[in-house]
Design a binder for these strands. Sequence first.
DNA 1: TGTACATCAGTGAACGCGCGTTCACTGATGTAC
DNA 2: TGTACATCAGTGAACGCGCGTTCACTGATGTAC
Lengths: 208, 208
Amino acid sequence: MPWSDDHKQATRERIVVAAARAIREHGPDGVSVAAIMRSVGLTHGGFYAHFASKEALVSEALLYAAAETLEYLEVTAARATGQQQVGIVDLAEAYLSTVHLEHPEQGCVLAACGAELARADDPVSGACSESVHAFVRRLVQHSAAPQQRERSREATGALAAMVGGMMLARAVEDPAAARRILADVRSFVRSALQAQTEAKTEAKTEAK
Amino acid sequence: MPWSDDHKQATRERIVVAAARAIREHGPDGVSVAAIMRSVGLTHGGFYAHFASKEALVSEALLYAAAETLEYLEVTAARATGQQQVGIVDLAEAYLSTVHLEHPEQGCVLAACGAELARADDPVSGACSESVHAFVRRLVQHSAAPQQRERSREATGALAAMVGGMMLARAVEDPAAARRILADVRSFVRSALQAQTEAKTEAKTEAK
DNA sequence: TGTACATCAGTGAACGCGCGTTCACTGATGTAC
DNA sequence: TGTACATCAGTGAACGCGCGTTCACTGATGTAC
């Protein structure tokens, strides 16, 4: 056996990591295979020893980025609140931050280029669809609502505001306006989730 | 004078309309100048008699699409409620519809390709920034909140959920799951806006 | 009214460019003896 | 332990392709006389 399998797999992972970063920064069509390979210190020809096509890499990088973001959010929210078990509001707060605004290349792939990925053909769009479901499923786990349908509403609604809010903030050219958008959306999500909690409490009180 | 100026301007507008449609369907990089001109019944060479560059057309088409969507939302919401003066909730309801889900090419340009447009260079990204401000400004006008800051929160938060919600719904491959996302986000926006209205009412009651 | 003319929207071949992918190759590696 | 060998990750030239843009042209038009 030439080289070690470990070495090949390590290179493969470095390509995925570089791609996940570049795709979020320039979009899937904004980065070339050659540019990704160059950023890893290799030439473009070797790419096909690791992936069947650019599409295959993009779909894998997309899933990688999504998983990375979910972990980042939980860790950051836990650190911010000082609690082990964080709520959806805390995750939204962590998501709608200035750091995230300024670093799309390390942030949520859905906010960075969700529409493009969804429009793509099947290996990519399938992974995009799966990523959305992964986000919702994970947020649902952080909901304190008693009914599953209510948890779904909280998770999906919050995710929509998070992704859309970050996209809008990034779309605006004035940095101050962008930060104002983030603050407004944070406040919006907070009141939506509080409303649902209150409605829940009221229903309980009335039942008694 | 050869031909009439009217004829030239009519052709120009047909190109903008076709571009606005194609861009929302395939993204700004997913349509070629030749394809747009073909869809209008012309050849690609004549394009530069109307526009300085593809970028110039994209930025104009983007502003056109945004204005079109704002008008559509107001008309549709007014028709649905039967009232002249509609609230942000009504606009959100009109936005988060199945028709809009299934017709990105006629829908909101921000949900269709906001991130790509924001990432582009200046004629395009400037128009994208302006479009976001136009959306927020228009939604603010539909808020019944007494304070400006509260109106901004309602408008920006609702827009974030609308754009993000539509993007998520389109990103999901199962049509039933997509419709569930739209329903969840509608419900989320409703409770957020109700919460703000209630908080407002409570504050008034306490003041008395 | 009829004719010669100037204009310019639109045509279509051609350009340079960057892309994804292919392929013959190279040379560092682990293995067999 | 030392040498010959097979493997294959990575190289770099080359490919076909579609793109945005250019440009010499054409022919329908409105105008001048």
